[in-house]
Each structure stands twice: as structure tokens, then as C-alpha cells.
Design a protein around this nucleic acid. Sequence first.
DNA 1: CTTAGTACTC
Length: 665
Amino acid sequence: MLAKPTTLLLQKHLSRLNSSNTQGNRTTKFLVHCHSQITKHGRNGDLKEAESIFSRMPHKNAISWTAMLTAYYENGHIAKARKMFEKMPQRTTASYNAMITAYTRSNPMMIGEASKLFAEMRERNSISYAAMITGLARAGMVDNAEELYLETPVEWRDPVCSNALISGYLKVGRLEEATRIFEGMGERDVISWSSMVDGYCKKGKIGHARELFERMPERNVVTWTAMIDGHMKMGCYEVGFGLFLRMRKEGFVKVNPTTLTVMFEACSEFGEYKEGIQMHGLVSRMGFEFDVFLGNAIIIMYCRFSFVVEARKIFDMMNRKDVVSWNALIAGYVQNDEVEEGYVLFEKTQQKDVISWTTMITGFSNKGKMGKSIELFRMMPKQDDIAWTAVISGFVGNGEYEEAIYWFIEMLRKVVRPNPLTLSSVLSASAGLATLNQGLQIHTLVVKMGMEFDLSIQNSLVSMYTKCGNVADGHQIFTSINSPNIVSFNSMITGFAQNGFGEEALELFHKMLNEGQKPNEITFLGVLSACTHVGLLEQGWNYFKSMKSLYQIEPGPHHYACIVDLLGRAGFLDDAIDLIRSMPCEPHSGVWGALLGASRIHLRLDVAKLAAQQIFKLEPDNAAPYAVLSFLYSSAGRNRDSEQVRMAQGLKGVKKSAGYSWIIV
DNA sequence: CTTAGTACTC
């Protein structure tokens, strides 16, 4: 705006007055200088300097004290801020306002203290009301916030407060109330609109969000980012990525670190490594400094695609790291089979939380080092349900079911409340032990705790009952599941197959396919063993072939073991040997064990020798080859050879009971 | 010169 000539005259006049200065005016200038210096140093985080100026001031007024108070709370020193407020010689409306803000910003729970101050104020201005209303809204006391808003003298009502109310209502999930405020607003700014767009996204109402988004007069980077994130979180990856491109092309909006954080998160979730790399290139070109959120998102992305070295580079480049950064990289090492490397970081960092500890506990458990897991568990400052569960499922994962149950009982004795994952783990332990009695007790506990409709628990119950031989109860649980997932189907199919209900297993498999559920490698393990039980050679062979051709699943050694078992039992031993020879993966002892079993049924000494030879190599302590060989020799009337095999076994000290690891489940 | 101000992220 152009200054009017009269205004210019007035300014000249005033500056002449100022230059013919007095002592008092110099003092004022010095005070003003000190106040802005205190504020400046406070904002830079240099409290020492701010304090030094404050203490050296010969004359202080209310503004000096308020400036220092603000410097303290902005740097997280609420107690010192309070001391300032209590010690200051006189309090002004501004100092009250500052202290109210200090309370509400340092901790929403201190809203009570803020209210007390607000109540004792003799005079309030618009800032007092705005501070109090936003404080209440942030603390989740939105109704009180709105009440105060309505009490605010009309000439003070600040449109910013409406936005604070909207965000307050959205924070506690009251979308209707937020909409009511939004609709009632005379003038809405981009923040009002963006808040509503985000609110709809968070409620999963993407359509509504989109409607508002297209309708709003002006969008900025925050609006676009909220929309993109909303779509990503709902799994609409394509649309989200499209919005990102659209934002840059037609939105004329520059991305910010938050946008990129959202994009990296989406890459980890749905994308491919390629896209993550592209995003990383974008970040480098834009020359962003890694803020903590962005850096963490990139670390997580690289770890997700097993590029831990790249993740480490980002980590080392970050100026500021938080506990999420450390945990992300530790988890990256642990999940990519470098537990020791993760442990080095774990020992190095001062920033540890329950997640860091449980990540390490799980990491060592996965390596079979339960001793180390327990050691860490005992060392952690406070063992919560998640930590207990990590230990328990660690034992389950290592097949130490009794230990798992023992630790579960310990957990109950320490009065730590189990979560659904805990119960699911101990049910797996009961399934592993095939101890129905124990499983029943845990089932009772599940019901008592009201967790019987948790899907992972229901799945574990199906496994537990069927592994204990109680197919009927397992099936009953299965039919009670509202929307069974792949694990539910696998548990039931395997349960049927293991108990000799091959036809039921296959029937369920087809039902699963009809429902559009994609099978995985575990499904086929159940299906193939079902075929073995019923002796469906051709069908089993077709399923086996369909794994790769229809479902892009590469059969593993366990699948080969099943199909060798199937072929072998039907008498096609030579075909089975050909198949083993053609395997793309290394046949493990289970595959040879299946062949060995078949050679016993069909009295094929030659095949048994071949299989035994391989098993000797892979599992020298396995007694099964000795038993089968000696049986076949004696069946062929070669009692001397039979005796020799048994003697060889005795010399090597192999125990007879050692050998059922090759029995295919 | 001091005090209020809202939306997106790990």
C-alpha cells in the first residue's frame, strides 16, 4: 500500500521528536533490545544466553519476565517458567496468557492449572480466550472449549478458534460435531477445509474427503498430503500415487518433507524397491535435510527391501535421531539375519523403549538363542505383556513348548494381562504338545477374557483342537469365524488332512478357492498331504503342478517330500527318484525319508539303500535308515546282512527312538 | 519489546 502524504509528514514529525531524545527513551530502547534478544536466543534454544541477558538487566519490567518465561517453556522447562510467573513483581494480561500457553503446550494434562489461572484473571483479551480454547480442544475437552468459545465477547471471537474446535472434535473422532462447526463458519480458510478433508480420510470416508477436496477453493501442500495419505492408508496405492503426480503437475504445489514421508511409507507398504529408489533420488535432488520423520521413513523403506546398508547410510547422515530411528535400523538388521549387528546398535544407543528390547528378544529367539533372549528380558526395566509374549512365542518358535507354557504361567503369576497374541502363542504350544487338557484350560481363559472373537486366537484354537485330534471342535470353531483368512483355511485344511479327513480337506480347499481366497505354500502342504491320505495320486500330482503354473508358488522341499510320499506309496518309486533328481532345491532328509518309507512298503531294497545313503549324510543320528534296511534284508532272507546293519547302528551309537523326523506331516 | 493461532508424517 502506498503511504499517503499526510502519513509521511506525520512520520517525519515523530522521528524529529524521537531524535531530540530524553534519558527515559534511551532506557526504553535498551529494554526493547534486551527483550528481543531474550526472545531470539530462546527460539534458538540458547537458554544460557537468554538467562545471562535477563540476569544482567538493571531494570526489568513485566515484559522482561514474560519474555524469559516464554523462553523457558519453549525449551521444555515448564517448572522454570512457572517459577518466573510466581516471582515476577507484577503480572499483566500478557504474562497470564503466556503462562496459560506454557501449561497447555507442555502437557495437555496441565489444562487444570491453566483453567485456574484463566479464572483468576481480572482482565482478559482475545489472546487469553484463544489460548484457553485451543488448550481445552487439545486436551480433548472440546465441549468445554466450545462453551468458552460461545462465552467469548463477540468482538473477540477469532475465526482461528473455530479451526481449533474443528481439530479438537476431529481428534476425539466426533466428525459430526466438526462438520457442524465447519458448516456454521462464515469464512473458512484453507486450514478449515484441510482439517475436514483429513478428518474424513481418518474415518475412512475417502469419497467424502474427495468431494470436499474438489470443492474447496484453494489447496496447499498440506491438503494434498492429507489426501494422498488418506488414500494410501486405505490401500488405494494407485490413486494415492496419481494424486502425488497430479499435485506436482497441476497443483503447482511443492512437496514438503511430510509429503515425502507419506510417499516412502507407501513405497514400503505397497511399492517396489524401484519406486523407493526413485523417491530417494527426488529427495536428494531437492536437497532436503532429513528431518526425523522423513529419515525414519526412508530407513524403514530400505530395511523393508533388505537394503540395510543403504538404510545405515541414511541413519548416519541424520543430524537428529530419535528412538524410532534406532529401532527401525535395529529391526532392519535383525530381520535381515544380522542379529549381532543389530545388537551392537542396541548396546550403543541411550534411546531405548520397550520396542527396542522386544526387537532384540525376538531377534535372538529367531536365531534359536533363547538364553540370550531371557537374559535381555530379565535386564529390561519393565516387562510388559508384549515383552512376555516375545519370550513365549520365542519358545514356541523353537519348538520348546513346555518352556512356553512355563513362562506363560509365570506371566500370569506376575499378574501381567495376556494379550490376544500371547494366548494365540500358548495355544500353539498346546497344539505342539498335543495336550488337549491344557488347550481347553487356555480356551476357557480366552472366553473369560472376552477374546474368543479375535481372529488369530480363533485360528490357533482350530490348530490346537485338530492337532489334539479333536477335529469336530476345531471345525466348530472354524465355522464360527466371521471372515476366515488364509491362516484360518490353512489351519482347518491341515487339521482335516492330519486326522485322515482327506476328502473334507480337499472340499474345503475348493470352497476357499471359490471364495476368491488365494492359497499359499502352507495351503498346498495340507492339500498334498490330504491327497496322500486318500491316495489320490493323479489329483495330488495336478495340485502339485498347479502350484507354479496357477499360483506362482515355487514348491519347497516339504512339498517335494509330500509328492514323493504320494508317488512312493502308490508304488511309483522310480518316478519319485526321477522327481527328486529334477528338484530345483536341495532335497532335505524329509524327501529321502519319504522315499525310504515307500521302499519299505514296496520291499525295494535298492531304493532303500539309495535313500539311506543320503540320510546318513544329512542326518547321521537318524535311526530310521537302519531300521528299514535291516527289515528289508531280513524280509529278503538275508539275515546276516540284517544283523550287520543293526551292529553298525550299535557301533555308531544311534538310538532307535531318534528317528521320526522324516515322517511327513 | 512480551502473550494466542488451527491442518498432513515415522
